[in-house]
Design a protein around this nucleic acid. Structure first.
Length: 421
DNA sequence: AATACACTCAACCGCGCGAGC
DNA sequence: GGCTCGCGCGGTTGAGTGTAT
């Protein structure tokens, strides 16, 4: 039990401040500073306690206060900071000039918490609400998927993964495993604002000796990351090497290795570019948690998959959201099921060479012959392109996509590691 | 128009902490 | 070391306002 409030000592006013009171307090502090708050009311001629005066000054009268609604940037920053600092409102407020802890706290409680929940994120832990459920699902899927083993399908799709190449981050390993490749049902995708999947992943920003750069995702791959990878592939440097969804570089040998998803992108990209090994100059790993929601656009039937990636490193944190809009296609969604082939080096080489030699002969699952449409969610006028019709020489829409934003944000994170790319 | 409900936000309250005695 | 006091923080409240029925 703390001390009784100072207001109990005397008969002091409580409640809302009148303009006259504001005027008195403002005039006093402007001329004399606040000094000892407990003496302010007496000196300013107010029937208030010092605590109340202090609060009124800090939250309302202070001249450097920023008025008006919070910007999107401010909201994002608050979410980022909250992920790191929790409910330390004063520390959060210190990062937002002109904003008070009280203001931020109110915004959080009335608005931001709700927004996060709508994204399927627990505002307290900043982890997806579905995490526990997903873990249960994964445990279930692990058993099922191991039974039916997707080796054959994996081979068809040219997916090659070496588990021992997977780097760890945050002192943990997130090995690729079949169980993480959860298949989504159409019903799930049709649900409104549902978090489908949560995956922990590492994100690598890599520069190559030939001057190229790449963003590699690694970790607990999922179907969503496949879509994520498509998003990367469509809009980011389509005519050069893309390792966005590859297994991370094997640092021991400084060798770039190939991942599970490029085969999905092959019809869109130059095969040789994707598969040509490149020597790594530098690479930084960023730990990240991600969640994905889908929304259905009733007017055009498009699914918007919204991926939110939250990364932390040291004292900094980050959140970015990527949207990709897909036209619903039940056969496509239902049929995607891919796994990992933990093959040896020779097997990998053979597959790579095979693909390089005869990229046209890649066997695609029947379902993937069904065209699906891609368009950036913010630009519905973007050409709707059947992936089967895309030719490498056709220029891709190079627009400021969310992926570009994402890259910038990753850059910020990378800089927090003290590395410049 | 009346009522209920939801939401925002200013302000209050309790408590922890550190300084001073 | 123990006590008092002031400051600052975070949780909570409740008046005011907006919106739906």
């Amino acid at each position: 039990m703390g001390r009784p409030p100072c207001c109990y000592k005397e008969k002091l006013r409580k409640g809302l401040w009148s303009p006259e009171e504001d005027e008195k307090l403002l005039r006093h502090i402007t001329h004399h500073g606040h000094g000892c708050w407990s003496s302010v009311p007496k000196l300013a001629g107010l029937q208030r306690c010092g605590k109340s005066c202090r609060l009124r000054w800090i939250n309302y009268l202070r001249p450097d206060l920023k008025r008006g609604a919070f910007s999107q940037e401010e909201e994002s920053l608050i979410i980022e900071l909250h992920a790191v600092l929790g409910n330390r409102w004063s520390q959060i407020a210190a990062q937002l000039p002109g904003r008070t802890d009280n203001e931020i706290k109110n915004l959080w409680n009335s608005c931001l918490k709700k927004k996060l929940r709508q994204r399927g994120i627990d505002p307290n832990t900043h982890k997806p609400l579905s995490e526990i459920k997903n873990e249960e699902d994964k445990a279930f899927d692990r058993n099922k998927n191991h039974e039916k083993s997707s080796m054959e399908e994996t081979s068809k799709m040219g997916m090659v993964v070496q588990e021992n190449m997977i780097s760890s981050f945050a002192n943990e390993r997130y090995p690729l495993e079949v169980s993480s490749c959860r298949k989504l049902s159409t019903n799930n995708l049709a649900a409104n604002s549902e978090t489908h999947e949560f995956f922990r992943s590492g994100c690598f920003l890599t520069t190559y000796e030939d001057g190229g750069t790449a963003t590699n995702l690694v970790g607990d791959f999922s179907f969503q990351q496949l879509v994520y990878g498509l998003n990367f592939g469509i809009f980011k440097n389509p005519d050069t090497t893309l390792s966005f969804n590859s297994i991370p570089n094997d640092r021991a040998s400084n060798q770039f290795n190939f991942g599970a998803l490029p085969s999905m992108i092959l019809p869109l990209m130059s095969t040789s570019n994707i598969l040509t090994p490149r020597r790594v100059k530098n690479s930084v790993c960023i730990a990240a948690d991600s969640s994905m929601n889908s929304y259905t656009n009733a007017s055009n039937g498009f699914q918007t998959l919204e991926t939110t990636m939250m990364g932390t490193s040291g004292n900094s944190s980050h959140e970015s959201t990527t949207n990709i809009e897909l036209q619903s296609n039940s056969s496509f969604f239902e049929s995607i099921s891919w796994g990992i082939e933990n093959c040896g080096e020779s097997g990998k080489e053979a597959q790579i060479q095979g693909l390089e030699a005869n990229p046209e002969e890649i066997k695609w699952p029947e379902c993937l012959q069904t065209p699906f449409l891609l368009a950036p969610s913010s630009q519905n006028q973007c050409p709707q392109t059947s992936y089967g019709e895309i030719k490498p020489e056709v220029p891709f829409p190079m627009i400021e996509t969310t992926m570009d934003i994402y890259s910038k944000d990753l850059q910020r994170l990378a800089e927090s590691f003290g590395q410049i790319f």
